[in-house]
């Protein structure tokens, strides 16, 4: 608890923690937006969500080592992950779309382990990062630092999310996706090729996660086993915000980023993952209490 006294002595640190947290939270929100999309359209909770983030990160690291700046790598990473998402849909996911929840949960969990261990075999179990130094600004007489790359990453996250939102709102395919989310059977009757919609949705989600992973790799670190934490973060954000609530996702993402950063500072970095998972349990318990008080469980 010594760290709390440090905070009290130097309140300016709060600003630093908050800032770093919010910048990270923007990336969490991006991945969560993808999860909400798949959840809402396909009724699948994609446990392998974080693995696409992780893979996107590793691709970015490889590109950076080949001399491509991580920011320029983002579109390429998104494209590659889009293809991977499409492939996984064609191989596995299309068989489980209409099956019961446990099957899709466990199947995506299996995919998650598969991708995680593949990454472990191919890239090794070391912590990696993509070099993309852009300089640093100093505020408050140098008490608060902002790495430009983090600002840029948050900006890219916002732009990607915005582009996806526009795509869903305006484009023909986006409208088909939203129609399928509301009522897949009706959409099918109206002549929408729901199989194609599902494939696009799943691939789009992988692409967004890949982009988020690229941003993670350039601002933080990436590791084969980091996937699950991102899955859990996304899940938490969606549960708190609710499906189909973009502003809620952004707010919850930023909030989670900030909360995690404070917890990491106060409890120590070794407990940051423990904090995320404990927070998940607490949020789900609280949600259940709220629902239970209404004495209503019939759907």
């Amino acid at each position: 608890m010594d760290n709390i006294t440090i905070l009290l002595d130097a309140p300016i640190l709060l600003v630093q923690l908050l800032l770093d947290g919010l910048l990270a939270g923007a990336i969490f929100a991006l991945a969560a937006y993808g999860m909400a999309l798949v959840w809402g359209v396909m009724n699948i909770i994609n446990v392998s969500q974080g693995e696409y983030v992780m893979l996107g990160g590793f691709v970015t690291v490889l590109l950076a080592e080949a001399g491509i700046h991580p920011m320029l790598g983002v579109p390429l990473v998104a494209l590659l992950l889009y293809l991977l998402g499409w492939l996984i849909y064609r191989l596995v996911i299309f068989r489980i779309v209409d099956r019961d929840l446990f099957i899709s949960l466990l199947a995506t969990f299996g995919i998650s382990i598969l991708l995680q261990q593949l990454a472990n075999q191919i890239f090794g179990a070391d912590v990696r990062t993509a070099e993309g130094e852009l300089g640093t600004s100093f505020l408050f007489n140098g008490m608060v630092t902002i790495a430009h790359i983090k600002l840029a990453a948050a900006l890219i996250a916002v732009l990607t999310g915005g582009a996806l939102w526009l795509f869903l709102k305006k484009s023909r395919l986006g409208q088909a996706i939203r129609a399928t989310a509301q009522n897949a059977r009706a959409a099918r009757i109206m002549g929408i090729d729901t199989d194609r919609v599902y494939a696009t949705t799943f691939a789009l989600n992988a692409a967004i996660c890949g982009a988020a992973g690229a941003l993670v790799a350039m601002t933080w670190i990436i590791h084969p086993y980091f996937g699950l934490v991102y899955t859990i973060r996304s899940f938490m954000i969606v549960v708190v915000a609710g499906l189909g609530n973009l502003l809620g996702v952004i707010a919850a993402g930023l909030g989670l980023g900030a909360a995690e950063n404070f917890a990491g500072f106060v409890l120590g970095v070794e407990y940051q993952a423990a904090f995320v998972f404990t927070l998940l349990v607490v949020i789900l318990l609280a949600r259940n209490l709220l629902l239970g008080r209404k004495r209503q469980y019939l759907k």
């Binding site: 199947a107 299996g110 995919i111 598969l114 991708l115 261990q117």
Partner: peptide, 16 residues
């Protein structure tokens, strides 16, 4: 060392 990769694949196969 590829056991865990195989485990992931096995889960998917059995579940699906």
């Amino acid at each position: 060392g590829w056991q865990r990769v195989a485990l992931g694949a096995l889960i998917v196969l059995i579940v699906v």
